[in-house]
């Protein structure tokens, strides 16, 4: 449209700069800006003020759902980035393993429930689905999981959590929640998985808990479906897929937690 210049178009240009015009009006202004130097100058003058408006919204920090929500978002993003990064460009050296655990926690499929057969198949599928959903701009990322993950990251990073170290990891307990964070894990033999074991106070044998796999960097972070205060030992062993009723291999570690 070749609209002649008038005051109304000048006002419309301001609303256009603010991003407050519906498509039809926006198209009129865009066409007009191509031919009218006066309105173009007006647009160029106002646009920086509009872009400055965005800066006024800058938050003190991301995430208000918990102390570490922003770590969780960053961990999720950086996980994708590191996987796709040029070799050797992957970030400043990390003095601690905790960032790696947080990264793993951000995408770990939570081992909730008592079922031993939380198959790794479904966990990978879920992970793949959420990544695809994200990349295609679908924003309904499993919010419920996100809330649990936030709790998990907060627990893992917490200064007041109790930590029980073993050679390649830690059992972390905070309140009645308990996690195992491991690194430098080898992939189990074909047809096998890792399985966690927990022993309640006063019990004589270990009870089977969740099965899991390390991620491709050898890190695993799992949430144990137990009341942490009632647990005296935690262990992990390699077991056939589907898990076992009692350990069939020598545990990778056994940690006393109570």
């Amino acid at each position: 449209m070749n609209s002649a210049h008038n005051d109304e178009l000048m006002d419309l240009t301001a609303a256009y700069a603010l991003g407050a015009l519906p498509p039809q009006d926006a198209a009129i202004v865009r066409d007009h800006l191509r031919t009218c130097a006066e309105c173009r100058a007006e647009y160029d003058a106002l646009r920086p003020a509009v872009d400055a408006l965005a800066q006024s919204a800058q938050a003190c920090r991301t995430g208000e759902n918990g102390p570490h929500a922003s770590d969780l978002i960053k961990a999720r993003v950086m996980r994708t980035v590191r996987q796709e990064a040029a070799p050797g460009s992957t970030s400043r050296p990390r003095p601690m393993l905790w960032p790696a655990y947080v990264v793993a926690a951000a995408s770990v499929v939570l081992a909730i429930g008592t079922a031993v057969a939380n198959s790794i198949l479904s966990s990978n599928l879920h992970q793949a689905q959420s990544q695809i959903a994200l990349l295609s701009g679908e924003l309904q990322v499993a919010n419920r999981n996100a809330a649990v993950q936030r709790q998990m990251v907060a627990d893992l990073m917490s200064k007041d959590a109790q930590r029980f170290a073993f050679s390649d990891g830690e059992v972390v307990r905070r309140g009645d929640r308990m996690y195992i964070a491991m690194h430098a894990m080898h992939p189990p033999p074909k047809g096998h998985v890792y399985q966690a074991w927990t022993e309640e106070n006063g019990a004589k044998t270990m009870a089977p808990s969740v099965t899991f796999m390390p991620d491709r960097t050898g890190v695993a972070v799992i949430s144990l479906p137990v009341n942490a205060s009632a647990i005296q030992y935690v262990a992990v062993s390699v077991e056939p897929e589907g898990g076992s009723k009692q350990p069939t291999t020598k545990p990778e570690f056994v940690v006393k937690t109570g």
Partner: peptide
């Protein structure tokens, strides 16, 4: 150039 540190 796919530099993860720069992205961070």
């Amino acid at each position: 150039k796919r530099d993860a540190a720069a992205f961070e």
